[in-house]
């Protein structure tokens, strides 16, 4: 049996968790899911639709919003009770955090950000995991009777595979130390713009924008396409745009339908943040820039002269 930790935010399921369920199903058809906190059990139907044969919904009077160590305690209690061969989660900040706590509680190894998992024996697994945010892959052997691993976002496809709904609720056995660190408040909202991580279209600018002013053109394009503005690290370091807009290894990783890279050369750290985009269009004066090798469509031109032409055509097309 494979146990999958399913992350959710107040009843909104994390799509990478569904990818983890599909990754688990490939290892063993007996996949069980654990979900914790307010709004979790209501998601059982949605989880079963991806093939989880049993869903364990953990609750406790002290649990509402995300509480990392308590979620780990819930996972750990199920490992002790049901002895899974492996425990998986989505390779997200929360998925990695919960499994790190689980691994620390068990003093067991944790293979994060896997792109491939093969169980080769009772306590051995061959894994391939992402290093440098996916710019390099590590082939490794993990020795552990219970493999703890997270799957890199968008490395596995979530496949619907309906299983009959089997929901069990349980009270998470918590101690005081498990609830010391928990969400106390939530601030800000997506009001006033499309969030970068969720945007279907990201229009991103780099050094070639030559300063903060030219970003108004990217805002225009994002406005027409219903997208968000992003940028490279050079841009935030120079103070042209806020850090929240940075795409890359140390910023936000995005996987939109369309990524338009304007004046971005394509350092490995930037590519790590945008390589999961469905379609990538690069606009750059240098036809040899690394970004051009990752793009589906390239325009070899200067953003300062090209973008005004594009905006004019976009606005005309939009009015039709």
């Amino acid at each position: 049996m494979i146990l999958v930790y399913v992350d959710h935010d107040r009843g909104e399921i994390d799509p990478i968790s569904l990818q983890a369920i599909s990754a688990a199903t490939a290892l063993d058809p007996d996949v069980q899911a654990v979900i914790v906190g307010h709004g979790g059990k209501e998601l059982a139907g949605e989880i079963a639709a991806y093939g989880a044969t049993a869903i364990h919904a953990g609750h406790h009077v002290d649990l509402f919003d995300f509480t990392p160590r308590a979620h780990a305690r819930a996972v750990h209690s199920l490992i002790e009770k049901n002895s899974p061969r492996a425990v998986l989660a989505g390779g997200t900040p929360r998925g990695n955090e919960v499994l790190s706590h689980v691994a620390a509680l068990m003093d067991a190894p944790f293979a994060s950000e896997c792109v491939s998992i093969v169980l080769t024996g009772a306590d051995r697994a061959d894994i391939v995991r992402a290093r440098w945010a996916g710019n390099m892959l590590e082939e490794a052997v993990v020795v552990a009777p219970v493999l703890i691993a997270s799957v890199q976002a968008h490395s596995f496809t979530a496949v619907a595979a309906a299983a009959p709904l089997s929901l069990t609720e349980f009270e998470v056995p918590l101690s005081e130390g498990d609830v010391l660190v928990r969400v106390q408040d939530r601030v800000g909202s997506s009001a006033g713009g499309v969030g970068l991580a969720e945007a279907k279209v990201v229009v991103s600018g780099g050094r070639g924008m030559d300063g903060p002013d030219a970003f108004s053109m990217l805002e225009d394009i994002a406005g027409v396409l219903g997208g968000a503005v992003g940028c490279s690290r050079v841009v935030t370091s120079a103070g042209w745009r806020p850090h929240a807009e940075q795409v890359g290894q140390t910023g936000t990783k995005v996987a939109p339908d369309l990524y338009i890279a304007c004046g971005i050369s394509g350092a490995t750290q930037h590519i790590a943040g945008c390589k999961s985009s469905k379609t990538l269009i690069a606009i750059n004066t240098d036809a040899q820039a690394p970004i051009m090798g990752f793009a589906d469509y390239v325009v070899v031109d200067n953003v300062h002269t090209f973008l005004p032409l594009l905006i004019e055509k976009l606005k005309a097309a939009n009015q039709k």
Partner: peptide, 15 residues
């Protein structure tokens, strides 16, 4: 990568 060229022609192709 498909090259869309440059200038006005590329803008139309990109749309």
């Amino acid at each position: 990568a498909t090259s869309l060229g440059s200038g006005d022609e590329a803008a139309a192709a990109l749309v």
